[in-house]
Design a protein around this nucleic acid. Structure first.
Lengths: 118, 118
DNA sequence: TCCTTACTCAACCTCTCGGTTGAACACACA
DNA sequence: TGTGTGTTCAACCGAGAGGTTGAGTAAGGA
């Protein structure tokens, strides 16, 4: 679990953390603001934010005693690239299989027609 | 960790499982074939496959005593949709911020020019 | 200066995860 | 029918995740 891709996927595997990302997509927020909707302690939320930060999904600045959290959009690209790559391969494979099946059907049809012609 | 999105992200958080997905994008494979490259037992690989299967990322059929594993491409859409949604929001927000900053710079410039004119 | 607010750190607990070994099951094949 | 092959199930173990409480730090405000 030391590469960034693992950290990003792992970070987003938690519903609370995905919810926080959704919240942060609307605008920056402080730790207390983020903690408000959930029934967990602020400390737990602070831990969740650390996970998101380590994954590069958010950044935390410093305004007086507040620590506004900001969503970093770039890291999402890392995931989409990975996903798209294998999805495309899998889909192409599926289409090739379709083509093979179609060809087999075609040949069977031809054989049948030839058989009828004789 | 009971919703599918959590299961999918969690499944792909493991490097071995991502590697298996990469392998399966090339073509179907049996458990033993999938286990071969890794230094873990076949049982551990079987467990990994169960995780991928529960997430809907792969399916297992039955050929004699073999269980060929097949990659299911559709589930990837679930992820890409989620990711794209928040990435777009975050990027739009970033662009709006850019616009606001540009406007502020413009106004400052105008004020400066007006100041110089008087 | 003292109090309050916003947050993090440290220690602890419980549950899950990824791994192991050993046994069981299902099927092909001699 | 027995034997080998491919796979899963069950029980266990150590490490880490996610939660708690309690204390510590840093800054604003009376």
């Amino acid at each position: 679990m030391d590469d960034q891709l693992s950290r990003v996927f792992s970070a987003l595997a938690d519903p609370i953390r995905r919810d926080m990302v959704a919240r942060l997509a609307v605008g920056d927020a402080t730790v207390n603001e983020l903690a408000e909707p959930y029934s967990v302690t602020v400390q737990a939320v602070s831990k969740h934010l650390k996970v998101l930060e380590d994954a590069g999904l958010v950044s935390r600045s410093k305004q007086a005693q507040r620590r506004p959290v900001h969503l970093e959009a770039e890291v999402f690209d890392l995931m989409t690239k990975w996903i798209e790559r294998y999805r495309q391969e899998a889909e192409q494979r599926y289409q090739r299989l379709d083509a093979v099946l179609a060809e087999m059907a075609q040949q069977t049809e031809e054989t049948r027609v030839e058989g009828e012609a004789s």
